[in-house]
């Protein structure tokens, strides 16, 4: 009997979600039951939990989805290592239940919110969003989540609250990347309050109709589709409402390279590389780059948030 440890399994051996689901259905149909299901798990497939109740939305219907395999094996999640494959390999010890998110700062209703309560703040909805990484690659991801605005409304920010700060988990015992001082842990991201209230901004709890895998920021992460991917803090434990613009982790790490806004903008280069085009993940060796769109293609919905601002200065 051969049982592979996670590290023995190359990404290519992992069955894509679609194939896997079909196989599951087939196994069920054949009535082969637990034995085969077990053998499926031994191939390195994490047990997945379907999200029972969520609605589809019209966002991104025209886009071709990036495969489950690519979305879950090509990650920037430095808390689990700086290599793209490392998060998927290193999340084994990380526990996402129980999980609470603490709502703090300039709010009338500070409180702790269990992940189950958080998932019920608003009807869960699938949002197919483009995700543009600051490094020049992109994906199309079917998130499942709730609008961040529903949490903001629950918290009832005071008149002093101008920004929302989202703080990620940083547990050296279960997140090996945190043991190295690569970044100033915990990871901090932040939005202006109006950005946080925007209907495109979501807290994602699922992917491809299933509970979010740990390497993608389980159990809850921020998704702001018109900003570079690093704005989307993962595995969030605290949400703070503050008056002054917070210093985010990447601003502290390299202020010349990463600004507070980090809006996708093909006309403003990163100091070290061009942002004019991007490489869509899932192509082959001969796939070409595609032009990057202003605000990642969401300009119609969000450009008015930045009316009159010099986006070269506020990059």
């Amino acid at each position: 009997m051969l049982i592979g440890r996670p590290s023995d399994i190359t990404a290519s051996e992992i069955t894509p979600a679609t194939v896997f689901r079909k196989r599951r259905a087939l196994i069920k149909a054949a009535g082969l039951g637990t034995m085969m299901a077990w053998s499926g798990l031994s191939l390195g497939e994490e047990p997945k939990t379907k999200i029972q109740d969520y609605s589809k939305s019209s966002y991104g219907q025209e886009e071709k989805l990036t495969s489950y395999r690519d979305i879950t094996t090509y990650n920037n999640f430095y808390e689990f290592g700086t290599g793209k494959e490392q998060p998927a390999e290193n999340v084994g010890q990380f526990k996402t239940t129980p999980w609470t998110v603490s709502i703090e700062g300039e709010v009338l209703k500070p409180r702790k919110l269990g992940i189950e309560e958080l998932m019920k703040l608003a009807p869960l909805e699938e949002r197919i969003y483009r995700m543009r990484c600051v490094e020049g690659w992109s994906m199309v991801i079917p998130w499942v989540g709730i609008p961040l605005s529903s949490l903001v409304k629950l918290a009832q920010p005071t008149g002093n609250a101008k920004f929302v700060e989202l703080i990620s988990a940083a547990d050296p015992a279960t997140m090996p990347g945190v043991r190295a001082p690569i970044l100033d842990w915990p990871y901090v991201e932040a939005l202006r309050l109006d950005e946080a209230m925007h209907s495109l901004t979501i807290l994602a709890v699922g992917l491809y109709g299933e509970i979010l895998p740990a390497q993608n920021g389980a159990p809850v992460r921020l998704v702001v589709p018109w900003k570079y991917g690093f704005k989307g803090g993962k595995s969030i434990v605290r949400i703070r409402f503050v008056e002054k613009m917070p210093q985010t982790t990447w601003m502290r790490a390299a202020p010349r390279e990463y600004g507070f806004y980090a809006n996708v903008n093909p006309t403003v280069d990163h100091p070290r590389w061009s942002q004019a085009s991007e490489r869509r993940i899932g192509g082959n060796v001969f796939s070409r780059r595609t032009p990057t769109l202003m605000f990642n293609g969401y300009a119609d919905q969000v450009a008015q948030l930045y009316a009159g601002m010099d986006l070269r200065k506020h990059f």
Binding site: T10, A11, S12, R69, D70, T73, Y74, K84, E85, W137, R279, I281, G282, G283, N284, V285, S287
Partner: peptide, 15 residues
């Protein structure tokens, strides 16, 4: 790796 589709999610970057 190229002929067996094992260059990963971003094959050009890999090369």
């Amino acid at each position: 790796l190229g002929f067996t589709d094992q260059l990963g999610a971003n094959p050009v970057e890999f090369i």
